[in-house]
Design a protein around this nucleic acid. Structure first.
Lengths: 227, 227
DNA sequence: CCTTGTGAAGCTGTTCACAGCC
DNA sequence: GGCTGTGAACAGCTTCACAAGG
């Protein structure tokens, strides 16, 4: 649950706020879009608009990385893209393992958006013997028991939990035991992990429940947004 | 992108912070778990532990809804569950429409976690004529052109975008035109909507990119967590 | 005694507004 | 003149610590 901001005990003062880290991939995408449009230089206004954020926030975010812009001119799209990519580790590909190849796990294994963002689904794993050995998105499903071997062999540090909630904790334990140090949890359950392991949670139901809350409020009040 | 906090121009002072709203479904799930364990009363400590939050935060969150606990005793699980459910509109079911029945849309349509949380996938829609008419998870896929009719007939106010990024804005426009006022966007693209429409975004790649950033930092520093 | 409910303090993140530089 | 980079003000969220009350 707690994403630790590594304090960097040594001198190299580099504590990028979590909120900023979460937006850097968005900026990267916006820069890629600009490149495709043939734009080679952009202002913080241009980029902010493409990314859907306030220009001041964008500039502040970028200031945590360094001074990569030119006053009076703006940012060089390609140069900035490279700097952000380097900062968030996108100059290399990251191999991930997906645990659970039900509907969601299968969909994730086929997700096109990963490959263009430096994420490579390197292995699929399932506890169900009936699924082990089948091929999904061109990858043969392995047994959960083979997790340690797979993680070590492919140097995987990121695991995705796409199992039912009841299996989530056990899967998390096994991932950690196998050497995984970052987990993306899609299961609707809380997972406990030791210090040094990051967990992020994506809860599909909760997102909809939040929208439902706002819908209910809209229905309750006549006017929604005061002009 | 901006989730508006409805200001409630009238007297009924009820401005629940966004951060709290996002946690209420988590508390609901924790309460359900406690009920299944046969627990009928719990302290803020018990519940907070089950929900993975700090007890003080839990109490403050609940205080926005009212005073539903008993000092010296704790909370009645069933009573609190009902109060939260009522607050976030979980006493009724919400019909949603999913646009795009590729891998992700199909997986979502089959997702078990929705039904138990008051979300009902009422309709599936796709722009591809080859998919229209097929049946997925027991629902016949309709044409994108039928969206207005479907939304009106089933009184749908929440739509899910599960298309490629390139189609997202057009789909959002059509959803809004059809009368949808809340959108959950899984496409890796920014969508613009008029005031009064809520959009939440779930970006699968970005979650992994954030984890990759932290992984990179761990690899860079020897010690991760200073004891 | 116990646990809730809550002012107050502290922290993180956002926005403003302008100095600095091209 | 224009745009970046940033201190400072602001807003929102979290945590503390304790009064209130069963």
């Amino acid at each position: 649950m707690t994403i630790l901001r590594t304090p960097l005990a040594d001198g190299s003062a580099r504590g990028i706020p979590d909120a900023t880290v979460a937006r850097l991939p968005v900026y990267l995408r916006a820069l890629n879009a600009l490149t495709e449009q043939g734009v080679s230089t952009c202002s913080s206004n241009d980029l902010a608009e493409n990314a859907g954020v306030n220009p001041a926030k964008l500039r502040k975010d970028l200031s945590y990385l360094g001074s990569y812009g030119t006053r009076g001119v703006g940012y060089d799209v390609e140069y900035l893209r490279y700097q952000i990519a380097r900062e968030i580790g996108q100059t290399q590909d990251w191999d991930v393992v997906i645990v659970g190849v039900g509907n969601l796990g299968s969909a994730l294994s086929a997700y096109q958006g990963f490959s263009t963002r430096g994420i490579r689904v390197a292995a699929l794993v399932d506890a169900d013997p009936k699924r082990v050995g089948t091929t999904i998105s061109g990858i043969t499903v392995s047994s959960l028991d083979d997790l340690p071997a797979i993680v070590e062999e492919r140097a995987i540090s990121i695991g995705i939990i796409a199992t039912p909630g009841t299996a989530a904790q056990e899967v998390a334990d096994r991932l950690v035991a196998a050497g995984v140090t970052s987990i993306l949890n899609f299961a609707p359950a809380l997972v406990q992990v030791p210090d040094g392991v990051d967990v992020r949670k994506v809860d599909l139901s909760i997102e909809l429940q939040i929208l439902a809350y706002h819908e209910q409020r809209k229905a309750g009040n006549d006017k929604v947004v005061g002009a």
